[in-house]
Design a protein around this nucleic acid. Structure first.
Lengths: 364, 364
DNA sequence: GGGATTTGTTTAATGGTTGAATTATTTGAC
DNA sequence: GTCAAATAATTCAACCATTAAACAAATCCC
């Protein structure tokens, strides 16, 4: 129970827009001020919260001591493997990006161990930079453009040429990552999380569409990433748009990817926008999604695509009259996935601070 | 915390296939036998659990006293308004249907107050029958074929001709329902819940498709009904199948309903099956759904539709190789929605027994 | 019948929350 | 300038629910 309430207090501070005090937390959570005081003391002692200068009060009364997430608390290492680049970033507990390393290199000629070794060479300076800041890493998360099981096995990443790559099993060969708990997830899923956390004021329910060579999507429902029964939801690229359309690599015909993939979009942007609108209308009708965020290569093309998408979307979205559907461009650009990966790590700390308090030897 | 653990114990008993004892609950939940004993005593005293005859043991040791949900505990009143019938049922805490009343009558000529009055005339004998059994009703839930807000306002029910009908506000005029807490929800949503709870061993994630005059769907994700950001998910009938197809009443072209609605299906079953397969493949790709349950008028036609649906579904479902998609016929037939409605009521009791224990004057 | 075995209850102890009283710090009125 | 009012945070005793361990109950096996 203490674990639960610690998480409640920490999340309340993390999610609040304005600076909270102990009394403010008590009001927001329903706990007593006494309880909140005790919990906050633990969180401060554990290095997860810090106390700020008392804010100048408006009315009478003792001024409230502001509380905030500790910038020197546990940080997350966000990693990304993509077709033409590798990336790593360090995000502290407050969500601020402290360090960022990207190397551009085509990964397709490399086999998975070589790619992971190269990833290690990007992760190593990131870890060194974190250590130099006195930041302890709570873990790492890795974004990969493919279908990933809950165990971290990449079942298939077509554009990387990966098939059944057991990433966790290969970690001991990567010194820079061997000693960190690692989560592996789909690139679009993590990018959606990145947009949720770092992309300003997002609705708690939205669809993130990532237009790369293929088209992926991450679905955030009620503030949580929906991964599907087996972990590979979001394959929006193979939604059928024209059942009798051109053959797709997946074996079917008329998939969205044939119209709105990077090459097809370059050839015919208007057709790409219309196809996207048709596919998105289906998603909106099925899931009652109010916000669609366009990322990847769609983000820079947003202004050109928007009208074409909206024409079909509004015509075909059933509840459009009752509640509008909003199109938005992604705000994080190519960093979304690694930001989301790092957010997974610090999100885990925020969701279960008791684990961190219990395990933290706090060497740094 | 006690509230949480009471729910944990009750749910454990409810969800367990075989008869549990106090010690069995302790093993399943991780609580101590002593704690479970105390909680079980409260639940028995509150009339939510009963103690059964000790089961004959296999090995040595004191025989375990079996525990089960109390058949005379709080019951749920499930209600349904549909185009050509009204229905009410009483489901006890164990999930057994104790009483069932259906009247067939076309509701389209009636205005909403008249329909609600007629519903009251179906609900009254159901309540009388429940009272005769000594059952106290914990509440009621109503299934309506339309879009319903969380407040119970029916925004639009096209086939009933309803528009912005505030059902809770009209309840005081219906004596048989005036004194019960009432939840209103979409028919397909509740039917999906009915199939989840009462339809045998269902996967925790599936799509329920209800083919009536229109086509609705209820989405159960991880054992919970997903209602969408604003409460009206599941409008699968207006997924685009052929973008340039025939005009639909919704203003778009080529909606699934134009091919697989009741009339279109009668005219061309093969085409209906193919269209369903295309639409369902999209859902499967997007949400990684492993099971699709066909209900409403699709259930009796299941054997005839199956092959045609599967052809398109398997061709277009991307992860079909990795994890198969299973088609199933609904098992509850036309009762699914009202069963699901009643399940909502008893599900609320099971999820928060402390509230019932606290509020129960237990008059009957 | 005695020992083994498992269930269920009792007892004291523990951990964490609550509520009331107390202290701390400011504003505003006289 | 002092005092009252207001608000924030802490302290402390009481309480509640869980736990652990001992104990009682009920059966099987030898």
């Amino acid at each position: 129970m203490r674990a639960h309430n610690l998480a409640l207090v920490l999340q309340t501070v993390a999610n609040s827009a304005d600076r909270l005090s102990r009394a403010g937390i008590a009001g927001a959570t329903g706990l007593t001020r006494a309880t909140v005081s005790a919990l906050v003391d633990d969180l401060i002692a554990g290095g997860l919260l810090i106390e700020l200068e008392p804010a100048p009060r408006v009315g009478a009364g003792r001024p409230a001591a502001g509380l905030a997430l500790a910038p020197d608390g546990p940080a997350g290492l966000g990693l990304e493997i993509n077709v033409d680049y590798l990336a790593a970033c360090v995000v502290d507990l407050t969500g601020a990006v402290r360090h960022r390393f990207v190397t551009h290199a085509d990964q397709r000629p490399l086999d998975p161990p070589a790619t992971l070794a190269a990833l290690g060479r990007v992760a190593a300076p990131a870890r060194a930079a974190a250590a130099a800041d006195g930041l302890a890493l709570a873990g790492a998360a890795l974004a990969v453009p493919g279908l990933v099981t809950v165990d971290g096995v990449v079942r298939v990443a077509p554009n990387l040429g990966w098939l059944d790559v057991d990433v966790p099993a290969m970690l001991p060969a990567v010194p820079a990552l061997a000693d960190l708990p690692l989560v592996v997830d789909n690139e679009a899923n993590l990018a959606a999380l990145g947009e949720l956390r770092a992309g300003g004021d997002r609705e708690p329910t939205f669809l993130y569409v990532s237009g790369e060579i293929g088209i992926g999507a991450g679905l955030v429902l009620d503030g949580e990433l929906y991964r599907g029964g087996r972990g590979w939801s979001g394959e929006i690229g193979h939604l059928t748009v024209y059942p009798d359309g051109p053959a797709c690599g997946c074996g079917a015909n008329g998939c969205l990817e044939q119209y709105a993939g990077q090459e097809a979009m370059a050839a015919n942007p208007d057709r790409a926008a219309a196809a996207l609108g048709i596919a998105l209308a289906g998603v909106v009708n099925l899931l009652d999604i109010g916000v669609v965020v366009l990322g990847g290569s769609y983000a820079p093309a947003f202004d050109r695509l928007r009208a074409g998408i909206e024409t079909e979307l509004h015509r075909r979205a059933l509840t459009g009259h009752l509640a509008p559907v909003t199109l938005q461009a992604a705000t994080l650009g190519p960093d979304a996935a690694m930001r989301g990966a790092a957010d997974v790590v610090i999100g885990a700390v925020r969701a279960d601070p008791a684990r961190w308090l219990g395990s933290a030897t706090r060497s740094g």
